[in-house]
């Protein structure tokens, strides 16, 4: 696979460095003076109750949001300049459920913004990369199916393929298992574990049960931020550390008012 890195990180340079970041929505502080380093090839889960700012961290890393104070660096660069090296898997697609695209079309969207993928149709090389990525998530057979015909788990895998076709060094996923049953979610984590062999994986989840089997570190977002090595503690202990009950994290609707604190 081709790799062109325009910014080679200095040895020991973390994949993501968040230093002293404060962020607020309409004056409500979500993150306060947060600092964290994520090294290359790590598998980090960002865990916390609803409204705690998990997704915000992901969007700060992607450069979709900007901190009020502090800095975010991805491989030593501002996020906007490191976007080519990040693959993003959102929780939802807000478009119409019947949006007329096929599976291969969605995967191809990951090739946009690369040099060479400018005006006009995608090249044969783009198509090959998209097919390879679909193959990797086990969906090459469904490439000509309408995206809206797929199940939730299949759609999630298409979105992962879309992130993979840009050959990222960091894969960022927002609640990848939120709408999946436990068996499909387990398969998804197997896939992510495989991805982790060649890239950094950062995901947001409230679903600790699955997370703890694969992740190397868990980032708990509450009023203060804590990092935990998963080798030190088991899932149940993590749940308590992060202030989450194991049962309630499966279903968001069991958190009355969306506030699990």
């Amino acid at each position: 696979m081709e790799r062109h890195k325009n910014t080679t990180p200095a040895p020991g340079e973390p994949a993501v460095r968040i230093s002293g970041v404060t962020f607020a929505f309409n004056g409500d502080p979500v993150l306060r003076n947060m600092s964290i380093d994520i090294k290359e090839r790590e598998f980090v889960a960002i865990v916390g109750p609803n409204g705690s700012g998990k997704t915000t961290i992901l969007k700060l890393i992607l450069g979709l949001l900007h901190p009020l104070a502090g800095t975010v660096r991805v491989f030593g660069s501002p996020p906007e300049r490191a976007r080519a090296r990040m693959g993003y898997v959102p929780q939802y697609i807000y478009a119409d459920v019947r949006f007329p695209v096929h599976v291969l079309d969605v995967a191809l969207m990951g090739r946009l913004g690369r040099r060479g993928a400018g005006l006009g149709p995608f090249s044969a090389r783009d198509r090959r990369a998209a097919l390879d990525a679909l193959d990797e998530v086990g969906l090459a057979d469904l490439r000509n199916r309408p995206f809206s015909d797929l199940s939730g788990g299949q759609r999630q895998r298409v979105l992962i393929a879309r992130a993979l076709v840009s050959e990222p060094d960091i894969l960022l996923l927002d609640e990848p298992t939120a709408s999946l049953d436990s068996e499909v979610a387990a398969q998804l984590y197997d896939l992510l574990g495989r991805m982790n062999e060649r890239m950094t994986v950062i995901l947001v989840s409230h679903d600790l049960w699955f997370v703890s089997r694969y992740v190397k570190r868990v980032l708990c977002i509450q009023k203060n931020v804590q990092m935990h090595d998963t080798t030190d503690v088991d899932a149940e202990a993590l749940g308590q550390l992060c202030g989450l009950g194991m049962r309630m994290v499966r279903h968001q609707d069991s958190c009355p008012g969306g506030d699990c604190r």
Binding site: G63, R83, M86, P90, Y94, A95, D105, M109, G110, L112
Partner: peptide
């Protein structure tokens, strides 16, 4: 027609298109 891929991408998922540097 020339910008078909770009326009389709922003219609489908604007946020992802932004992360691709569009």
């Amino acid at each position: 027609v020339l910008l078909f891929n770009q326009f389709t991408a922003i219609c489908f998922d604007e946020e992802f298109a932004r992360t691709r540097g569009l």
